[in-house]
Simulated assay, not measured.
Amino acid sequence: MKNLDAVLAAAVEAAQAAGRVIVERQATGGSALSYKQDVEPVTEADLLSDGVITRSLQRAFPLYGILSEETAASDGWESGDLSAPQWVVDPIDGTANYTRGHPYVSIAVAFVVDGFTQAGVVHAPFLGETFTAVAGRGAQLNGVPIRVSHPDGLLRAVVSTGFPHLKTDLDPLVQRITRLLTHCQDIRRAASPALDISWVGAGRLDAHTETLHPWDVAAASLIAREAGAVRSHLEPVPPHIPPDLFGGGYLVSSPAIHDELVDVLRGTRGGDSPPPGRMAGTDPNGLDLNRA
Rank of each mutant, 00 (worst) to 15 (best):
V217M: 03
P242V: 02
L234P: 00
I197P: 11
I223A: 05
I187D: 10
V200I: 07
I177K: 12
V237H: 07
I197T: 09
L180Q: 12
C184A: 12
A220T: 01
H233L: 08
P193T: 09
R189L: 15
P243V: 04
C184K: 06
H240Q: 14
L180K: 11
L173D: 15
I187T: 14
C184R: 06
A227W: 12
A218H: 06
A220N: 01
A227V: 10
G248E: 01
V217H: 02
D186C: 08
H183R: 13
V237Q: 06
V237Y: 04
A190F: 10
I197G: 09
R176Q: 15
L205K: 05
E210P: 04
L222M: 06
L181G: 13
A220K: 00
H240R: 13
H213G: 13
L173Q: 15
P239C: 09
E226H: 07
S198H: 10
C184Q: 08
A194L: 02
A220Q: 03
G228M: 13
L212A: 06
A229Q: 01
I241M: 05
T182V: 05
H233I: 11
W215N: 14
T211P: 11
I187F: 11
D244K: 06
D186M: 11
S232H: 08
D186S: 14
A207R: 01
V237A: 04
S232N: 14
S221G: 06
T182I: 05
D186R: 13
G203A: 08
A202I: 11
L222Y: 01
S232I: 11
L205P: 04
G247M: 03
V237S: 07
G203C: 07
R179K: 15
R231N: 01
H240T: 13
Q185R: 15
L245E: 00
H233R: 09
H183D: 10
G249P: 00
S221A: 07
P236E: 13
L212Q: 07
A229C: 05
T178H: 14
G249M: 01
H233W: 04
S253K: 02
T211I: 11
D244R: 11
C184Y: 03
P242D: 04
R231E: 02
H208R: 10
A220L: 01
D196R: 08
L251F: 02
A207W: 00
R231M: 06
E235W: 03
T209F: 00
T211M: 11
E226R: 09
R231T: 07
H183G: 07
G203I: 04
I197Q: 09
L212H: 04
A218M: 07
R189Q: 15
E226D: 09
Y250R: 07
A227T: 08
Q175D: 15
T209S: 01
D216S: 08
G249S: 02
H208A: 06
I241F: 05
W215I: 13
A227P: 07
S192N: 04
A202T: 10
E235V: 14
I241W: 05
D186F: 11
G201L: 00
L245P: 00
S221T: 09
D244L: 02
G201N: 02
H233F: 03
